[in-house]
Amino acid sequence: MGLVRRNAPPPEETAAPPTTGTLMRQLDDADPDCRREAALGLGGVAEAVPALLRRVAAETDPLVRDAVLTTLAAHDTAAVATGLGGHLASDDAGLRTAAAEALATMPVSVPAIIPGLLADPDHDVRVMTAMVLADLPHPGSQTWLAQMIAEDDHPNVVTAAIDALLPSLELEHHDLLRAAVQRFPDDPFLRFTVEAALR
């Protein structure tokens, strides 16, 4: 009948939170909801990073994977950057885009893996790298993107880099864009993009 007040704290409030050991075991639980909560509960726990990285690789439920990545990305460390960087090459579109999104929030440790990614023989990986750089809040992003535009030999990588650079495009980049059109005269989209950017 009507509005009721809840005076006592909910029972969970009094229960002790699960220990790190329990949460780490629960990362492999059969119930996705249990895995999801365990991943979130491990926020800020450095010793859980290796287990979380293993979970990203194994996880098939996108909801759980999102939770694991939310926790992992807050550890802006070399181990996490390297671990997630490897997934940019994944055949699973959900995994590679989720990894790119997480990397874009890690400005401390991602710069160290950029040179390796820019040299990756797989152009799809380099396209994903442009996606990371588009959102990475780091002053070096512009320079790497400019380098991709000037040097990458795949037109899709160059157009992805141009798109990522556009929000911070400066006058000094205009020649770079014109040169890109010269290098790929047969790519209609690249030409269109550069013309739009220079207008």
Binding site: L3, V4, P10, E13, P17, L40
Partner: peptide
């Protein structure tokens, strides 16, 4: 009557542990 019927809590929405009792 109405004031008393609404329960108020202090919590940071980003804090997973503090949000645990909300179920």
């Amino acid at each position: 009557g109405i004031r008393g019927a609404v329960t108020l809590h202090q919590v940071n929405i980003c804090d997973t542990l503090a949000m645990r009792p909300f179920r």
